[in-house]
Design a protein around this nucleic acid. Structure first.
Length: 420
RNA sequence: GUGGGUGUAGCUCAGUUGGUUAGAGUGCCGGGUUGUGGCCCCGGAGGCCGAGGGUUCAAAUCCCUUCACUCACCCCA
């Protein structure tokens, strides 16, 4: 019989990889808590309409990457391709905006996009998503970014680049859009096929094009920052000033655009050189009208999404190894009486919260010692027929290779003492 | 959706112009005289050579198809 394999683009996360993941998630819980965020858990499945309205009908995500199906042939449902729309849906559905003026939420979980898998890109991938709903002042933007970088630093990640930009607002972005459109239309013949398509779908994306001729044209194009209205310019400058206050290094990238329609004003991205083409580890930004567009009051928000797979890929295997300590004790036995005694002791200690391992197969002492060594056990207790009759056992320190005799009657106390 | 690369032991990979029972390292199991780990030495288990078809006396090797993985485009976390 053939075995059944996982679906393309869907991955099993196995140990020791899971140790890294837990470390990442635990660090997020701690750091976010300190910054006043509460966890929210939301469904993986939503009505398709939520993402069409939230992310934007003409985005790649909605157009061709969503897992959408008819539930019993009636209602169109979609596996969420991102978290922000769902968080806001829950925020509105439970009237959280009425309960408090500032709401800070985060959630961790899988997202689904039907893209061609490649390094750092999977069809089910995982994000840590944080959102601040309510305030729209520039310090909030800076605070969120500050928390993000603090989190990344806690994980010991280096060689990351923070890039920021302002996309403007409803007042000034249309003017820029017109300017860039008329500029590009004038030189449409020289653009690559992809860019001509972008002209219709998302003109700002042309800035990202890697084709040389396009890049050359773009270098002469009008730039977004020159079109920002006074309000947006002021907001953006204050964000930068706040970042400088905490000595956060950042790069201004006037050409950075985002793939989701809802972003306004501040946008940011954290990239790394380690991950090949999928170099974005974090993406985020402000969305001034998303809450309104999803049927709520006109409340502003800002958030980011961290790619856990991409983050985990940056933590070296050696570091992950250190995350998993070995057992405190391995019990090696010889003979049935010793095995029974060890079985009782081993599980008794475990129930006291001490990590103890043993072998039930009755192998040679040598192979049990090998096993203890491999597991990186700090101590090995040798319990044979001889020890049973003499009512004692040998406790071996695996690091110093020294061993002492310990009384059988006080074994549990002795080991518990070691655990301190 | 479009290109390129790769599929041989649990893992990392060799496998010469097609030619006997398909190899190594690592990991796993056992052993190196009485019941003691790491280093070293010896032995063992473990492979429908991704799948299907074709060429041939003979295919892991050549051809076709297909699937999977992978990298890049695209997109994005």
């Amino acid at each position: 019989m053939e075995i059944i394999t996982a679906v393309r683009g869907f991955k099993d996360i196995l140990p020791p990889e899971t140790d890294k993941w837990r470390h990442i998630e635990e660090t997020a819980h701690k750091v976010f808590c300190v910054f006043g965020f509460r966890e929210i858990r939301i469904p993986l499945l939503e009505k398709t309409e939520l993402f069409c309205r939230g992310i934007g009908e003409s985005t790649d995500i909605v157009e061709k990457e969503m897992y959408t199906f008819l539930d019993r042939g009636e209602e169109s449902l979609t596996l969420r391709p991102e978290a922000t729309a769902s968080v806001i849906r829950a925020y509105l559905e439970h009237n959280l905006h009425a309960a408090e003026s500032v709401t800070k939420l985060y959630t961790i979980g899988p997202m689904f996009r039907r893209e061609r898998p490649q390094k750092g890109r999977y069809r089910q991938f995982h994000q840590i998503d944080a959102e601040i709903l309510g305030p729209d002042d520039p310090r909030t933007d800076a605070e969120l970014i500050l928390m993000l970088l603090h989190f990344l630093e806690k994980l010991g990640l280096r060689k990351l680049t923070l890039e920021i930009n302002s996309l403007g607002c409803a007042a000034c972005r249309p003017a820029f859009r017109e300017a860039i459109l008329s500029f590009l239309r004038g030189r449409e013949e020289e653009l690559c096929g992809d860019c001509r398509r972008r002209l219709v779908t998302n003109p700002l994306r042309v800035f990202d094009c890697k084709v040389e001729t396009c890049a050359a044209i773009i270098s002469q194009a009008p730039l977004l920052p020159d079109f920002l209205c006074a309000g947006c310019r002021d907001h953006f400058e204050k964000v930068q000033a706040s970042l400088r206050l905490f000595d956060i290094p950042f790069k201004l990238n006037a050409k950075m655009v985002r793939g989701l329609d809802y972003y306004t004003r501040t946008t940011f991205e954290v990239t790394t050189e380690f991950l090949g083409a999928q170099n974005a580890v974090v993406g985020g930004g402000r969305y001034d009208h998303l809450v309104r567009d999803l049927g709520g009051p006109d409340i502003s928000g800002i958030g980011f999404a961290i790619g856990i797979e991409r983050l985990a890929a940056m933590i070296p295997e050696a570091d992950a190894d250190a995350l998993l300590p070995g057992p405190l004790l391995f019990i090696a036995t010889l003979g049935e009486a010793a095995l029974e005694k060890a079985f009782f002791l081993c599980n008794g200690l475990r129930m006291k919260g001490i990590h103890v391992e043993m072998d039930h197969a009755g192998r040679s002492l040598k192979s049990q010692m090998k096993r203890a060594d491999k597991l990186k056990s700090a101590y090995t207790l040798i319990l044979g027929e001889r020890e049973i009759t003499e009512n004692k056992a040998l406790l071996r320190n695996m690091l110093s290779s020294t061993q002492t005799e310990v009384g059988l009657d006080s074994l549990e106390e002795t080991i518990t003492e070691l655990a301190r």
